[in-house]
Design a protein around this nucleic acid. Structure first.
Lengths: 182, 182
DNA sequence: CCGAATCGAGACATATATGTCTCATGCGAG
DNA sequence: CTCGCATGAGACATATATGTCTCGATTCGG
């Protein structure tokens, strides 16, 4: 197999992340232009908008998975893993957030990916509860939401120029665990 | 002036909040249908999509302002005010969140409203810092982001059926101030 | 060098969203 | 009751997004 095909698909996906991050309603022509490919070429690889969105979701999930696995490889506890994972996810948050505002895809692979991600995160949080990191009286569902949304808050802070990714991740973790009190 | 005109505009705005909350890319026809008015009637009151979005933004800002002012009328401290404001804002978050993903409007009224909101919140947080509620070493910009995003997290928790609005607001405030540690 | 595959550009048809217009209807004011 | 006004329904034109197709250029393997 030539690598040109793979490269083209990669360019399109990368361009789609950039364009849709800035404007979720952008046209496929905008994506093709950003990717530096013809509009027809985009359609050669993705049958349409839905198909592209599904590919973006699966790509994003894989990127996330890889980044988290790599970051948590040497972690001894679930608590450390969650903190390291937060640091790993934050720089990737921008490209993935627009997907959450997308009308829910009916594709079974997409729904399964989301379910797996949430389930795994909830599991790790439950384990971290057992390690004494989180109050057992606080619902795990809430901590999941807090984890995800504080990552988004961190990314927003980075975009605003008010922190580096590392600083933002540290603030997010501190807030989730100890809050912002003195 | 008859009240029918006002009522129609109100219905359209209300419908737009509902429709765009679920699908930011919905058509104006969808909005008109949800509002129970003709498509032409919508165009009689709003020149187009942009005009409608601006009206939604200003309406949302006014709703927020009213709710917060009412909730904080009897508060003695800035800290109490922030907590009461969080409780007041959370139930309204759903209708406003989609506006933040909208491509930034160039309308001066919109940009000014956003600037004022953020400035006021930052001011209150600075005052609450002086009251000892927040660590002065934590950037105010971060606390602003945390405040806003934990509200969103709370709303998401409510939508998921995992908490009541009151519970979610309490969890958000607790997390922002003390975190989720035991 | 030759052939196959892929690509960019662009023409073309279609679908949807948008904006404007007309006309008949309903409802309240006078 | 009659008039006037806002409305609903729908026709109409336009713009944009989308999906398909063709053709010539480029690139890589043989």
């Amino acid at each position: 197999m030539r690598d040109r095909g793979v490269s083209t698909v990669g360019h399109i996906l990368e361009a789609a992340f950039e364009v849709f991050s800035q404007n979720p309603g952008a046209s496929l022509a905008d994506v093709a232009k950003q990717a530096g490919v013809g509009r027809a070429t985009l359609h050669r690889h993705f049958s349409g908008r839905d198909d592209l969105m599904i590919a973006l979701t699966l790509t994003a999930a894989k990127e996330l998975d890889t980044a988290v696995e790599e970051a948590t490889a040497n972690c001894q506890t679930y608590t450390e893993g969650l903190e390291a994972g937060l640091h790993a996810i934050l720089p990737l948050a921008a490209r993935h957030m627009f997907l959450s505002t997308e009308p829910a895809s009916q594709d079974p692979r997409v729904t399964e990916v989301y379910a797996t991600q949430t389930r795994d995160l909830a599991h790790d949080i439950d384990m971290a509860k057992a390690e004494g990191t989180f109050d057992p009286h606080v619902p795990t569902e809430w901590i999941v939401q807090g984890y995800e949304n504080l990552i988004y808050a961190g990314w927003a802070t980075v975009v605003a120029g008010d922190a580096t990714p590392k600083q933002a991740a540290a603030l997010a973790w501190r807030t989730l665990t100890r809050g912002t009190c003195p």
